[in-house]
């Protein structure tokens, strides 16, 4: 019983983490059809920015709740700036090129940004644990759960609802949906696809940075955290269906619960459970769980 509960709660926490990491990636893919490797850099910059912000805030002895908001704010600001620079400075030049070429452009940008991190922050790690520690914990039976983890689950759920709501009920969201559905028709109806692209990429970058920021207090922010996140996010997004927000949510839940079950019940398979799930899902649903296959054009 306690194990079942533990699998459920651990799975939710991990799923929240995966969703926060994957949502920006799937949004950019859905709108722009770009598999964005730079997403790992957004995550890393968010985490580094957050760690720096936490350092500044708590050194002054300011209040805990404000520290969390300050940390998230700084990280998202960094995401905004980098997203803008990348989209306007580089991506704009390669729109219309082969999809793979664009993936490679983001990969090149990722390599460059990895070294920019070293140049800015140096090759040392940054702890930012204050928000996690000050959040405290609660006991449920034998288990002790961290309030910060519970907060993450709530945040992820809120973010999922917010994204879904804005896609459905805001003007910009509806425009996005049109572009996702058919970019040429959208352009033909006079939607300014260029602006939509820029805004979407920046939002995606800010979401990536947000993922890094909220994870920063749990981890030690160090070089190479971006690389780890990229494949994980790719896997989640591929399972759920590239470009689908519901897909990212369901993908995150499947992977999160699957991994938690593996750790508790069969630790030896934990290492490749994510990829096994991905291969299985793709074998039966080639386009992921939540996307329709594109019509074949004659």
């Amino acid at each position: 019983m306690i194990t079942a509960f533990a699998i459920f709660s651990d799975g939710l926490v991990y799923a929240a983490y995966l969703f926060l990491v994957a949502v920006g990636l799937t949004l950019i893919f859905g709108v722009m059809k770009i598999l964005n490797v730079t997403h790992g850099s957004f995550y890393a910059f968010g985490a580094y920015g957050a760690a720096t912000a936490v350092g500044i805030w708590f050194d002054r002895g300011l209040s805990d709740a404000g520290g969390f908001l300050f940390m998230v704010g700084v990280a998202m600001l960094i995401g905004l700036v980098i997203g803008l620079i990348l989209e306007r400075g580089i991506l704009r030049l390669v729109y219309g090129r082969d999809e793979v070429v664009i993936v490679l452009v983001t990969y090149a940008a990722f390599l460059i940004l990895e070294d920019v991190i070293v140049l800015v922050w140096g090759p040392r790690s940054y702890p930012a644990y204050q928000p996690m520690v000050s959040a405290g914990s609660i006991d449920i039976g034998e288990l002790t759960l961290s309030n910060y983890d519970i907060g993450l689950v709530v945040l992820a759920a809120a973010l999922a609802v917010a994204v879904w709501w804005s896609l459905k009920y805001t003007r910009y969201g509806r425009l996005l949906t049109v572009v996702i559905f058919d970019r040429e028709v959208a352009a033909a109806y006079g939607i300014n696809v260029k602006v939509i692209y820029t805004v979407t990429f920046i939002i995606g970058a800010m979401l990536g940075a947000l993922g890094g920021a909220v994870m920063a207090p749990k981890i030690s922010v160090t070089l190479g955290i971006g690389v780890e996140v990229i494949v994980l996010a790719f896997a989640v997004v591929a399972i759920g269906g590239m470009g689908s927000i519901e897909g990212a949510l369901i993908g995150a839940l499947i992977v999160g619960l699957g991994r938690a079950a593996a750790v508790h019940l069969m630790p030896e398979i934990e290492l490749f459970v994510i990829y096994a799930v991905m291969a299985l899902v793709l074998a039966f649903r080639p386009y992921g769980l939540f996307t329709q296959p594109a019509p074949r054009k004659i």
């Binding site: 598999l35 999809e99 494949v231 790719f234 896997a235 591929a238 590239m242 290492l271 490749f272 990829y275 096994a276 991905m278 291969a279 793709l282 074998a283 080639p286 386009y287 992921g288």
Partner: peptide, 21 residues
Amino acid sequence: RYREIFFAMLSLAMSMILYGI
């Protein structure tokens, strides 16, 4: 049977399973 990004992702999954093993 796969094309585009799905082909890429499925082959990625295969190689990562071998890596895990």
